[in-house]
Amino acid sequence: MRLYRLITEPDTPEFCHRVTQALNRGWELHGSPSTTYDATKGVTICAQAVTKYVPDEEYTRETKLGAY
């Protein structure tokens, strides 16, 4: 099965830690990161898509993406 996640976080070191953690768990970057500005909160929000191939598993809506 191929899995997809979109990691989002305000533009702080925590965003980079979350993406780094995903990479170290076997996820791969999918495309470029994106940013947007949330004017109501006064913060920049970052997003990075990641994908992962998991052999011999079948995807269901109950699949816990964070478990991989």
Score class of each variant (00 low, 15 high):
Leu65Lys: 15
Thr36Ala: 10
Thr63Met: 05
Gln21Met: 01
Ala67Phe: 02
Gly31Cys: 01
Glu62Pro: 02
His17Pro: 08
Asp38Lys: 11
Lys64Val: 03
Cys46Thr: 14
Pro10Leu: 13
Val50Ile: 05
Glu57Asp: 11
Thr36Arg: 15
Pro33His: 09
Tyr59Lys: 11
Thr8Ile: 12
Pro13Gln: 10
Arg2Gly: 00
Thr12Leu: 12
Pro13Ser: 07
Asp11Gln: 14
Gln21Thr: 06
Cys46Trp: 13
Thr8Trp: 07
Asp11Val: 12
Pro33Leu: 09
Arg61Leu: 00
Thr12Val: 14
Thr63Glu: 04
Thr60Asp: 09
Gly31His: 03
Arg25Val: 02
Leu65Thr: 13
Val50Gln: 05
Asp11Arg: 15
Gln21His: 04
Tyr53Arg: 14
Pro55Ala: 10
Tyr37Asn: 07
Thr44Asp: 04
Pro10His: 15
Thr40Phe: 04
Val19Met: 04
Phe15Met: 15
Gly66Tyr: 13
Met1Ala: 05
Tyr4Glu: 08
Ser32Tyr: 00
Ala47Glu: 07
Thr44Phe: 03
Gln21Tyr: 01
Tyr37Val: 06
Thr35Phe: 07
Gln48Thr: 01
Val50Lys: 02
Arg5Asn: 11
Glu57Asn: 10
Pro33Tyr: 06
Arg2Ile: 01
Tyr53Asp: 15
Glu9Ile: 13
Lys64Glu: 06
Ala49Trp: 04
Thr63Ala: 02
Thr8Asp: 11
His30Met: 05
Arg2Leu: 00
Leu29Asp: 09
Thr60Ser: 14
His30Phe: 05
Tyr59Thr: 13
Tyr4Met: 12
His17Tyr: 12
Ser34Pro: 08
Thr12Gln: 12
Ile45Phe: 01
